[in-house]
Write a protein that binds this DNA or RNA. Structure first.
Lengths: 154, 154
DNA sequence: AAGATTATGTTATAATATAACATTACCGGT
DNA sequence: ACCGGTAATGTTATATTATAACATAATCTT
Protein backbone atom coordinates (compact mmCIF):
# COMPACT_ATOMS: atom_id res chain seq x y z
CA UNK A 1 0.00 0.00 0.00
CA UNK A 2 2.83 2.41 0.65
CA UNK A 3 4.29 4.15 -2.31
CA UNK A 4 7.67 5.51 -1.39
CA UNK A 5 10.18 4.37 -3.95
CA UNK A 6 12.98 4.29 -1.45
CA UNK A 7 11.96 3.78 2.11
CA UNK A 8 15.38 4.83 3.38
CA UNK A 9 14.78 8.23 1.87
CA UNK A 10 11.43 8.61 3.47
CA UNK A 11 12.87 7.75 6.88
CA UNK A 12 15.64 10.26 6.45
CA UNK A 13 13.25 12.92 5.27
CA UNK A 14 10.94 12.33 8.20
CA UNK A 15 13.83 12.75 10.63
CA UNK A 16 15.09 15.92 8.97
CA UNK A 17 11.58 17.31 8.94
CA UNK A 18 11.06 16.43 12.59
CA UNK A 19 14.31 18.05 13.61
CA UNK A 20 13.47 21.22 11.80
CA UNK A 21 9.99 21.34 13.30
CA UNK A 22 11.41 20.90 16.78
CA UNK A 23 13.99 23.62 16.19
CA UNK A 24 11.32 26.00 14.93
CA UNK A 25 9.26 25.39 18.02
CA UNK A 26 12.08 25.45 20.54
CA UNK A 27 11.63 21.76 21.35
CA UNK A 28 14.45 19.38 22.01
CA UNK A 29 14.82 16.63 19.46
CA UNK A 30 16.99 14.46 21.65
CA UNK A 31 18.84 11.32 20.66
CA UNK A 32 16.23 9.14 22.29
CA UNK A 33 13.37 10.89 20.54
CA UNK A 34 15.18 10.66 17.25
CA UNK A 35 15.82 6.95 17.70
CA UNK A 36 12.23 6.26 18.62
CA UNK A 37 10.97 8.24 15.65
CA UNK A 38 13.42 6.44 13.42
CA UNK A 39 12.14 3.08 14.61
CA UNK A 40 8.57 4.15 14.06
CA UNK A 41 9.42 5.11 10.50
CA UNK A 42 11.57 2.08 9.89
CA UNK A 43 8.76 -0.22 10.77
CA UNK A 44 6.74 0.05 7.66
CA UNK A 45 3.39 0.05 9.35
CA UNK A 46 2.15 0.77 12.85
CA UNK A 47 4.57 -0.41 15.52
CA UNK A 48 3.84 -1.26 19.15
CA UNK A 49 5.52 0.42 22.07
CA UNK A 50 7.07 -2.78 23.32
CA UNK A 51 8.43 -3.61 19.90
CA UNK A 52 10.15 -0.25 19.88
CA UNK A 53 11.45 -1.07 23.31
CA UNK A 54 12.87 -4.39 22.16
CA UNK A 55 14.61 -2.82 19.21
CA UNK A 56 16.01 0.02 21.24
CA UNK A 57 17.16 -2.43 23.81
CA UNK A 58 19.13 -4.30 21.17
CA UNK A 59 20.77 -1.08 20.06
CA UNK A 60 21.36 0.67 23.34
CA UNK A 61 20.69 -1.16 26.58
CA UNK A 62 18.28 -1.67 29.37
CA UNK A 63 15.63 0.65 28.09
CA UNK A 64 12.52 0.64 30.26
CA UNK A 65 8.89 1.16 29.24
CA UNK A 66 8.50 4.70 30.62
CA UNK A 67 11.40 5.82 28.49
CA UNK A 68 9.71 4.66 25.34
CA UNK A 69 6.29 5.91 26.33
CA UNK A 70 7.66 9.32 27.20
CA UNK A 71 9.33 9.64 23.84
CA UNK A 72 6.14 8.50 22.13
CA UNK A 73 4.14 11.01 24.16
CA UNK A 74 6.44 13.77 23.06
CA UNK A 75 6.26 12.74 19.42
CA UNK A 76 2.50 12.32 19.56
CA UNK A 77 1.88 15.62 21.31
CA UNK A 78 3.89 17.36 18.66
CA UNK A 79 2.16 15.68 15.77
CA UNK A 80 5.17 13.70 14.60
CA UNK A 81 3.58 10.38 15.39
CA UNK A 82 0.00 9.20 15.64
CA UNK A 83 -1.37 6.56 17.89
CA UNK A 84 -3.70 4.07 16.29
CA UNK A 85 -6.08 3.22 19.09
CA UNK A 86 -7.65 0.24 17.45
CA UNK A 87 -4.22 -1.39 17.23
CA UNK A 88 -2.47 0.08 20.27
CA UNK A 89 0.29 1.03 17.90
CA UNK A 90 2.11 4.06 16.60
CA UNK A 91 2.80 5.33 13.15
CA UNK A 92 4.82 8.25 11.78
CA UNK A 93 2.85 11.26 10.65
CA UNK A 94 3.42 11.85 6.99
CA UNK A 95 2.65 15.55 7.02
CA UNK A 96 3.25 16.82 10.55
CA UNK A 97 2.53 20.44 9.77
CA UNK A 98 -1.17 20.03 9.10
CA UNK A 99 -2.24 16.80 10.61
CA UNK A 100 -5.35 17.53 12.60
CA UNK A 101 -7.85 16.31 10.02
CA UNK A 102 -6.33 12.94 9.34
CA UNK A 103 -7.58 9.45 9.30
CA UNK A 104 -6.16 6.03 8.62
CA UNK A 105 -6.84 3.28 6.18
CA UNK A 106 -5.52 0.19 7.88
CA UNK A 107 -5.11 -2.96 5.85
CA UNK A 108 -5.89 -6.00 7.94
CA UNK A 109 -3.91 -8.11 5.51
CA UNK A 110 -0.55 -6.36 5.06
CA UNK A 111 -0.87 -4.28 8.23
CA UNK A 112 -0.02 -0.97 6.67
CA UNK A 113 -1.76 2.23 7.71
CA UNK A 114 -2.15 4.94 5.16
CA UNK A 115 -2.72 8.40 6.45
CA UNK A 116 -5.21 10.43 4.47
CA UNK A 117 -7.09 13.68 4.51
CA UNK A 118 -10.44 14.51 3.06
CA UNK A 119 -12.16 17.86 3.04
CA UNK A 120 -15.51 16.09 2.78
CA UNK A 121 -14.83 14.14 5.91
CA UNK A 122 -13.66 17.17 7.81
CA UNK A 123 -16.78 19.03 6.77
CA UNK A 124 -19.07 16.10 7.60
CA UNK A 125 -17.54 15.87 11.06
CA UNK A 126 -17.77 19.59 11.65
CA UNK A 127 -21.40 19.55 10.57
CA UNK A 128 -22.14 16.69 12.94
CA UNK A 129 -20.55 18.65 15.74
CA UNK A 130 -22.68 21.71 15.04
CA UNK A 131 -25.85 19.67 14.77
CA UNK A 132 -25.15 18.16 18.18
CA UNK A 133 -23.89 21.33 19.82
CA UNK A 134 -20.67 19.43 20.31
CA UNK A 135 -17.27 21.08 20.18
CA UNK A 136 -14.82 18.54 18.71
CA UNK A 137 -11.30 18.56 20.06
CA UNK A 138 -9.81 15.36 18.80
CA UNK A 139 -10.90 12.91 16.15
CA UNK A 140 -10.02 9.25 15.99
CA UNK A 141 -10.93 7.85 12.60
CA UNK A 142 -9.55 4.46 11.79
CA UNK A 143 -10.88 2.46 8.90
CA UNK A 144 -9.82 -1.15 8.74
CA UNK A 145 -10.28 -3.19 5.61
CA UNK A 146 -8.29 -4.45 2.68
CA UNK A 147 -6.08 -2.35 0.47
CA UNK A 148 -5.95 -2.57 -3.30
CA UNK A 149 -2.59 -4.28 -3.38
CA UNK A 150 -3.77 -7.04 -1.10
CA UNK A 151 -6.87 -7.53 -3.19
CA UNK A 152 -4.63 -8.02 -6.20
CA UNK A 153 -5.75 -4.93 -8.03
CA UNK A 154 -2.30 -4.30 -9.49
CA UNK B 1 -25.81 14.92 27.03
CA UNK B 2 -28.11 11.96 27.23
CA UNK B 3 -31.75 12.63 26.81
CA UNK B 4 -33.67 9.71 28.15
CA UNK B 5 -36.27 10.95 30.57
CA UNK B 6 -36.12 7.82 32.65
CA UNK B 7 -32.91 5.90 32.48
CA UNK B 8 -34.50 2.84 34.05
CA UNK B 9 -36.81 2.62 31.09
CA UNK B 10 -34.01 2.85 28.61
CA UNK B 11 -32.12 0.05 30.35
CA UNK B 12 -35.19 -2.14 30.35
CA UNK B 13 -35.90 -1.40 26.73
CA UNK B 14 -32.34 -2.20 25.74
CA UNK B 15 -32.56 -5.56 27.47
CA UNK B 16 -35.89 -6.42 25.91
CA UNK B 17 -34.58 -5.41 22.51
CA UNK B 18 -31.41 -7.45 22.97
CA UNK B 19 -33.36 -10.50 24.01
CA UNK B 20 -35.61 -10.29 21.02
CA UNK B 21 -32.68 -9.81 18.65
CA UNK B 22 -30.95 -12.85 20.10
CA UNK B 23 -34.10 -14.92 19.80
CA UNK B 24 -34.57 -13.88 16.21
CA UNK B 25 -31.03 -14.91 15.40
CA UNK B 26 -30.98 -18.12 17.37
CA UNK B 27 -28.44 -16.76 19.84
CA UNK B 28 -28.48 -17.42 23.53
CA UNK B 29 -29.06 -14.39 25.67
CA UNK B 30 -27.79 -15.98 28.84
CA UNK B 31 -27.98 -14.63 32.36
CA UNK B 32 -24.39 -13.57 32.27
CA UNK B 33 -24.76 -11.76 28.98
CA UNK B 34 -27.90 -10.09 30.22
CA UNK B 35 -26.19 -8.95 33.41
CA UNK B 36 -23.18 -7.60 31.53
CA UNK B 37 -25.41 -5.75 29.09
CA UNK B 38 -27.44 -4.40 31.97
CA UNK B 39 -24.30 -3.08 33.65
CA UNK B 40 -23.15 -1.50 30.41
CA UNK B 41 -26.48 0.28 30.12
CA UNK B 42 -26.67 1.15 33.79
CA UNK B 43 -23.38 2.94 33.64
CA UNK B 44 -24.45 6.08 31.97
CA UNK B 45 -21.43 6.42 29.75
CA UNK B 46 -18.73 4.06 28.55
CA UNK B 47 -17.75 1.50 31.17
CA UNK B 48 -14.50 -0.43 31.47
CA UNK B 49 -14.29 -4.20 31.48
CA UNK B 50 -12.80 -4.33 34.96
CA UNK B 51 -15.49 -2.05 36.33
CA UNK B 52 -18.06 -4.46 35.00
CA UNK B 53 -16.11 -7.23 36.63
CA UNK B 54 -16.10 -5.46 39.99
CA UNK B 55 -19.82 -4.85 39.87
CA UNK B 56 -20.60 -8.39 38.82
CA UNK B 57 -18.36 -9.64 41.53
CA UNK B 58 -20.34 -7.73 44.10
CA UNK B 59 -23.57 -9.23 42.79
CA UNK B 60 -22.54 -12.75 42.06
CA UNK B 61 -19.12 -14.00 43.08
CA UNK B 62 -15.60 -14.65 41.96
CA UNK B 63 -16.08 -13.55 38.39
CA UNK B 64 -12.85 -13.66 36.41
CA UNK B 65 -11.73 -11.46 33.51
CA UNK B 66 -12.28 -13.99 30.72
CA UNK B 67 -15.90 -14.32 31.75
CA UNK B 68 -16.49 -10.63 31.32
CA UNK B 69 -14.48 -10.35 28.12
CA UNK B 70 -16.31 -13.25 26.58
CA UNK B 71 -19.66 -11.71 27.32
CA UNK B 72 -18.44 -8.39 25.94
CA UNK B 73 -17.15 -10.15 22.83
CA UNK B 74 -20.51 -11.74 22.28
CA UNK B 75 -22.35 -8.47 22.76
CA UNK B 76 -19.92 -6.60 20.55
CA UNK B 77 -19.98 -9.17 17.76
CA UNK B 78 -23.72 -9.00 17.70
CA UNK B 79 -23.87 -5.24 17.67
CA UNK B 80 -25.43 -4.85 21.10
CA UNK B 81 -22.40 -3.09 22.53
CA UNK B 82 -19.64 -1.02 21.00
CA UNK B 83 -16.07 -0.78 22.15
CA UNK B 84 -14.67 2.70 22.33
CA UNK B 85 -11.03 2.15 21.50
CA UNK B 86 -9.81 5.54 22.56
CA UNK B 87 -11.14 4.87 26.06
CA UNK B 88 -10.79 1.09 26.30
CA UNK B 89 -14.40 1.08 27.33
CA UNK B 90 -17.74 -0.27 26.26
CA UNK B 91 -21.08 1.34 25.62
CA UNK B 92 -24.52 0.02 24.76
CA UNK B 93 -25.58 0.34 21.17
CA UNK B 94 -28.65 2.49 20.95
CA UNK B 95 -29.95 1.06 17.70
CA UNK B 96 -28.55 -2.44 17.34
CA UNK B 97 -30.39 -3.25 14.16
CA UNK B 98 -28.57 -0.81 11.94
CA UNK B 99 -25.40 0.14 13.68
CA UNK B 100 -22.63 -0.23 11.15
CA UNK B 101 -22.34 3.43 10.22
CA UNK B 102 -22.05 4.83 13.70
CA UNK B 103 -19.71 7.12 15.46
CA UNK B 104 -19.37 8.60 18.89
CA UNK B 105 -19.33 12.05 20.36
CA UNK B 106 -17.46 11.64 23.62
CA UNK B 107 -17.57 14.46 26.12
CA UNK B 108 -14.29 14.75 27.94
CA UNK B 109 -16.06 16.61 30.73
CA UNK B 110 -19.09 14.51 31.65
CA UNK B 111 -17.76 11.34 30.05
CA UNK B 112 -20.85 10.47 28.09
CA UNK B 113 -20.68 9.01 24.62
CA UNK B 114 -23.46 9.78 22.23
CA UNK B 115 -23.90 7.43 19.34
CA UNK B 116 -24.76 9.10 16.08
CA UNK B 117 -25.21 8.41 12.43
CA UNK B 118 -24.69 10.66 9.50
CA UNK B 119 -25.32 9.87 5.88
CA UNK B 120 -22.76 12.51 4.91
CA UNK B 121 -20.11 10.79 6.94
CA UNK B 122 -20.93 7.39 5.60
CA UNK B 123 -20.75 8.74 2.08
CA UNK B 124 -17.50 10.61 2.72
CA UNK B 125 -15.92 7.46 4.09
CA UNK B 126 -17.16 5.34 1.22
CA UNK B 127 -15.80 7.87 -1.24
CA UNK B 128 -12.44 7.86 0.48
CA UNK B 129 -12.39 4.10 0.24
CA UNK B 130 -13.09 4.14 -3.48
CA UNK B 131 -10.51 6.83 -4.12
CA UNK B 132 -7.90 4.71 -2.38
CA UNK B 133 -9.02 1.37 -3.78
CA UNK B 134 -9.62 0.41 -0.20
CA UNK B 135 -12.41 -1.91 0.88
CA UNK B 136 -13.58 -0.76 4.33
CA UNK B 137 -14.69 -3.43 6.75
CA UNK B 138 -14.86 -1.65 10.05
CA UNK B 139 -14.86 1.98 10.99
CA UNK B 140 -13.74 3.45 14.28
CA UNK B 141 -14.83 7.05 14.54
CA UNK B 142 -14.56 8.62 17.94
CA UNK B 143 -14.80 12.33 18.39
CA UNK B 144 -13.81 13.70 21.76
CA UNK B 145 -14.69 17.20 22.79
CA UNK B 146 -17.20 19.02 24.92
CA UNK B 147 -20.92 18.58 24.75
CA UNK B 148 -23.43 21.41 24.81
CA UNK B 149 -24.60 20.70 28.35
CA UNK B 150 -21.09 20.91 29.71
CA UNK B 151 -20.49 24.15 27.89
CA UNK B 152 -23.55 25.56 29.61
CA UNK B 153 -25.63 25.94 26.48
CA UNK B 154 -28.86 25.07 28.27
C1' DA C 1 28.77 28.55 38.74
C1' DA C 2 23.97 28.37 40.90
C1' DG C 3 19.49 27.47 40.41
C1' DA C 4 15.62 26.23 37.51
C1' DT C 5 13.81 23.33 34.16
C1' DT C 6 13.53 19.48 31.26
C1' DA C 7 14.76 14.87 30.10
C1' DT C 8 15.96 10.37 31.27
C1' DG C 9 16.79 6.37 34.48
C1' DT C 10 14.79 3.11 37.70
C1' DT C 11 11.66 0.43 40.44
C1' DA C 12 7.45 -1.07 41.01
C1' DT C 13 2.90 -1.83 39.83
C1' DA C 14 -1.58 -0.74 37.57
C1' DA C 15 -4.70 -1.62 33.85
C1' DT C 16 -6.15 -4.22 29.94
C1' DA C 17 -6.64 -8.61 27.68
C1' DT C 18 -6.07 -13.51 26.27
C1' DA C 19 -4.38 -18.59 26.08
C1' DA C 20 -5.31 -23.04 27.50
C1' DC C 21 -7.69 -26.37 29.56
C1' DA C 22 -11.68 -28.11 32.84
C1' DT C 23 -16.38 -28.20 33.79
C1' DT C 24 -21.13 -27.33 33.20
C1' DA C 25 -25.42 -26.24 30.74
C1' DC C 26 -28.14 -26.74 26.84
C1' DC C 27 -29.91 -28.74 22.48
C1' DG C 28 -31.38 -32.22 19.23
C1' DG C 29 -32.12 -36.93 18.15
C1' DT C 30 -33.59 -41.16 19.67
C1' DA D 1 -35.47 -39.54 29.87
C1' DC D 2 -30.83 -40.52 28.09
C1' DC D 3 -26.94 -39.83 25.03
C1' DG D 4 -23.72 -37.32 22.62
C1' DG D 5 -22.38 -33.02 20.66
C1' DT D 6 -21.92 -28.10 20.96
C1' DA D 7 -21.83 -23.88 23.23
C1' DA D 8 -21.09 -21.38 27.48
C1' DT D 9 -18.83 -20.65 31.60
C1' DG D 10 -15.24 -21.55 35.22
C1' DT D 11 -10.37 -21.48 36.42
C1' DT D 12 -5.48 -20.80 36.38
C1' DA D 13 -2.00 -18.55 34.64
C1' DT D 14 0.16 -15.17 32.05
C1' DA D 15 0.67 -11.79 28.19
C1' DT D 16 0.27 -7.10 26.82
C1' DT D 17 -0.14 -2.22 27.43
C1' DA D 18 0.71 1.70 30.29
C1' DT D 19 1.76 4.75 34.28
C1' DA D 20 3.04 6.40 39.18
C1' DA D 21 6.61 7.90 41.90
C1' DC D 22 10.91 9.12 42.91
C1' DA D 23 16.20 9.54 41.61
C1' DT D 24 19.63 11.27 38.61
C1' DA D 25 21.52 13.68 34.81
C1' DA D 26 21.59 16.97 31.10
C1' DT D 27 20.60 21.51 29.46
C1' DC D 28 19.29 26.29 29.75
C1' DT D 29 19.18 30.93 32.05
C1' DT D 30 21.21 34.35 34.29
Amino acid sequence: MHNCTSHNDCITEALVRAESICNDRGLRFTDLRRKVLELVWTSHGPIKAYDILDKLDARIAAIKPPTVYRALDFLTENGLVHKINSLNAFVGCSHPLKHSECYFLICSDCGEAKECCSADLVEAIAKTGRRNEFLPEHITLEITGECGDCRGLH
